[in-house]
Structure formats: C-alpha cells, structure tokens
Design a protein around this nucleic acid. Structure first.
Lengths: 203, 203
DNA sequence: GTCTATATTCAGATAGAC
DNA sequence: GTCTATCTGAATATAGAC
C-alpha cells in the first residue's frame, strides 16, 4: 500500500515535470501570452484539461517556470564561482560567473531562457510574486562586483551598480543573437570579459 | 471640392496615427500578444471595429509599429552622428550614437521601445517582413564600428561583430532597468562608453 | 490521473446602418 | 469614417465518466 502510494506520487511528479518542461520550452519560443495550454499539453503528451490536475491555472505554471528559471541560473553561477581554484582573483571570479550565466541561459535551461524573455512583459501580480527570487540573484552579482572593486580588480571610480545592469543586460540579450554554430560559450565569455575589463580602445 | 477631399484625407490620417500611437504604447507596456484591439481602440478614442477602416488586421498594425520603430531610431542615430563636430574622432562618434540610441529608445519613441521589446517574440512571418529594415540599422552600426577600428579608435584585435551585439544588447536591455529619476541619459551614455572603451579594470 | 464534453468568455474580424 | 450588432473560432477552465 505504501509502495503503491509512493509509486503513484512519483508518476504524478513525472507528469508534472513534463508539463513544466513543455511550458518552459513554449514560453521560451513564443512567449507566455502567445502560448496556449493546448500546445503545452500536446508537447507533454496529454490533454489540456489534464493539466488542471497538476496546476491551478496557466498563471500558476508561469510563475513556477519563472521561479525555477532563476533558481537554476543562481545555483549554477553560485556553484561555479564557489568552485573557483584557490587564490583565483576577482577578475577570474567574474569571468567564471559570466560564463556560467551564459551557459545556463543559452544551453542548459529553457526555464532560465523563458524567465529572461518573459519577465519584462509579465503581468504585475506575477512579477510581484516572483520578485524576491530575482532580487536574490541580483544581490549575488551586486556582492560579487562590489567585492571585486574592494579587492582592486575593478577601478575605484566605477559605478558597480550600473556596471551590473550593463553587463547582465548584455548577457541576457545574447539570446537574441546567439548562434550554436558560431563561437563557443567559453569563447564568448572570454571576449566579453576582455571588453569589460580591458576596454576596446587601441593603445 | 478639392479642399474638402484634402480635409477628409487629413482627418483619416490623424485617426490612423492615433491608432498607431495607441498600439505602440500598448505593445510597449504589455507586449503584442497580450494587447487587444479593444485596448488600442479605447486609448485612441474609438471602437475596435473602426480600426478596420484604417488597417487590415492586428498583424498589419504590428508590422507598421515595428517598421516605424526602426525608422525612428535609425534616423535619430544617423542624424546625430552626421551632425558630429568637424574633426570628431571615432570614439566621439560612437559615443554620440550610443546616446542617440538610448534617448530614442528610452525617451522619444514608444515605437522603438515596442520594436525592441516585441521583435524577439514576433511570429516568423512578421519578422521576415520586417527583417530588411532591421538589418539596415544593424549595418549602420557595423560600418561605424568597422570604421572606428580602421581609424585606430578601436583595437585591431577586437571582434567588432561581437562588440556590436554586446553593446547594442546592453543598450536595448536598458529598458528593463532605466529609471527616469535616476542618472540622465547623457550620463548613462558617457559611463557606458567609458566601460566599453576604457574597461573597468583598476590600473 | 486522464479523458471527453462542455461552459464561459473574449478575441479578431465582418456586415451594414448611419 | 464610425458606429452597433454579430459571426466565428479559440482560449481558459470546470464537470463528471472512466
């Protein structure tokens, strides 16, 4: 009995995840408003009505996709930076964070891509409920860049608040132009960091 | 008779513009898919059905908003650069272009903002019909940065193609965080150019 | 848990009066 | 040119059988 209950819980959990995966993919491709529950259901291989066994509403799915999207990228970036070799300087740490951010957004997570694409146009109530999680990730970058400046990796007179918006913005926008057949993400991260740290002006 | 015809043409033209203005504002705020003709009509002070006297479909309006959005920013940026003082170097020219791009996007044109926000999620047929205009503006930046490198304002080993995507991306993303009560657009342009040309690394 | 059937609402779009 | 009335389709969501 206990086993059967456990097995059923697991099946439900798997279906739930299939629905979320399908939703993340569609939200990434066409955006939240243009995606229908029918499309999500087809991708997840069930009927639209069945979704309501797992979720309360379309908004409910959306919010969870947004939350997971941030969780994924925050986890990836934090862990990548934490795994930096002993004695890595802050330029190196920022570089690692940039690469992890790009990799998650462009390769690893439809959830993160869906988040970045849709958050700006999300209805206010949803933005509000998602807000704290987003801030937490933003805070991570704030601390990282502030510490980098404190440690002398970034010039004293730099407005790190603006630098963060500028840099993260450029990274997020890469969704619009990234070509999997072009430069690798490692390479992109490297060149972008060179732009930001060294500047492009000729000597 | 000629006068009356002319007057009526003008009225039609004005209404048409009111509709486009309303559409651009709504597309900027909520996105294309989430905006209804009813909302556009209310803002333009008429009924949804009346829109069809002026436009063939919602897509038709969308496409025109996209086109106007690019035309506006292209015009502004090109003219600003063309008006650069004699003997301005290329760093100065890029700076001027950055400021004009930001000003149009953030202050002067709902059309441009609507374009930037919605193009990425636009249905493929519309993207295709809008594509050439977008390319033309992209080409302007390509030439500007290539010439800047040729003239020694940008280092020889810089991938200006990536630099363009990186820089324009960062500028476009400013919509997400720009605060009219914060730093002025002049100031933002200046600091962003300093990031890109000089880099943020401490000496 | 998932299905079919359906309620409800509202979107884009058309017809025809004024 | 703009209106009211309306068509048609499709969306989210619910009810209840299996």
């Amino acid at each position: 009995m206990a086993r059967r209950a456990a097995a059923e819980t697991k099946k439900s959990e798997r279906t739930r995840e299939r629905i979320l995966d399908a939703a993340a993919l569609m939200f990434r491709r066409k955006g939240y408003a243009a995606t229908t529950l029918n499309e999500i259901a087809r991708l997840a291989d069930l009927r639209a009505a069945s979704i309501y066994y797992h979720f309360g509403s379309k908004d409910d799915i959306f919010l969870q996709v947004l939350d997971i999207g941030i969780d994924r990228i925050y986890d990836e970036v934090r862990e990548a930076v934490a795994a930096a070799p002993d004695g890595a300087d802050y330029r190196r740490k920022v570089h690692i964070a940039v690469e992890a951010h790009l990799a998650t957004l462009l390769k690893h997570s439809d959830y993160t891509a869906a988040n970045i694409i849709n958050y700006g146009l999300a209805p206010e109530p949803i933005r509000r409920r998602h807000h704290d999680r987003r801030e937490a990730y933003g805070d991570f970058w704030r601390r990282l860049l502030r510490d980098a400046r404190r440690n002398g990796a970034i010039a004293r007179n730099t407005d790190v608040s603006l630098l963060r918006l500028f840099l993260i913005g450029a990274l997020n926008w890469s969704q619009e132009w990234y070509d999997p057949d072009g430069k690798s993400i490692k390479r992109l991260a490297k060149e972008i960091c060179a732009f930001v740290f060294d500047g492009v002006e000729a000597e």
